[in-house]
């Protein structure tokens, strides 16, 4: 079984595969789409690696992320990054995790979840992937996402007395 097949099998145990995800559109054609057309619902989907740079796009909930991380850890993937995306119209903050594989080429799993903007709380995965510690601190720093049970959730790049989250869309310096 290839790496991507076993990764799919491992993820399927946590997040079922579905067709509810709107795939990335090819650019520059068709009518302009509004960001609020992206409906968040749980489900994983295979995506075109050549177009998106990812082989799997997994949409999960905040409660599922720890299980997803354990599944990916079991498949020997490494953590690449954690990023936030602010969606003020939906009143949500999205957290995007990317994982990749050292040996097998073209394996990149993008895991996305959304939390309400007023109370952004996500369980930490730094106990599974130690590198997530700093990435989660950065996401907390820029978006104010609170990673519960994080060992040291303090500002990392901004000054320690900063009282704003600069990458939120409504932040004006």
């Amino acid at each position: 079984m290839s790496v991507i097949e076993s990764v799919k099998a491992a993820i399927e145990k946590v997040v079922p595969f579905s067709e509810t995800v709107i795939p990335a559109d090819p650019a520059g054609e068709g009518e302009e789409q509004q960001p609020d057309q992206v409906v968040h619902s749980a489900g994983a989907k295979e995506v075109d690696f050549a177009k998106t740079g990812c082989s799997l796009d997994v949409l999960c909930t905040a409660e599922q992320i720890l299980d997803v991380a354990h599944a990916l850890d079991g498949e020997q993937l490494f953590i690449e990054s954690i990023a936030g995306v602010d969606w003020p119209k939906e009143d949500q903050i999205e957290v995007v995790y990317t994982f990749s594989h050292f040996q097998d080429s073209d394996v990149r799993v993008m895991v996305r979840l959304r939390v309400p903007r007023s109370e952004p709380k996500v369980p930490t995965i730094s106990k599974v992937f130690s590198g997530a510690d700093w990435h989660e601190r950065e996401t907390y720093d820029f978006y104010g996402v609170e990673f519960t049970d994080h060992p040291n959730l303090i500002r990392i790049l901004l000054p320690e007395d900063a009282d704003f989250y600069p990458l939120r869309k409504d932040y004006m310096p």
Binding site: I22, P26, G28, E32, P35, Q37, T52, G53, S100, M110
Partner: peptide, 19 residues
């Protein structure tokens, strides 16, 4: 004006994988 979507792209710099 690229259309709606998520794109990840990685390159190898002198220090490692830049995404």
């Amino acid at each position: 004006k690229p259309g709606l979507g998520y794109h990840y792209s990685a390159v190898e710099t002198a220090r490692g994988s830049l995404g």
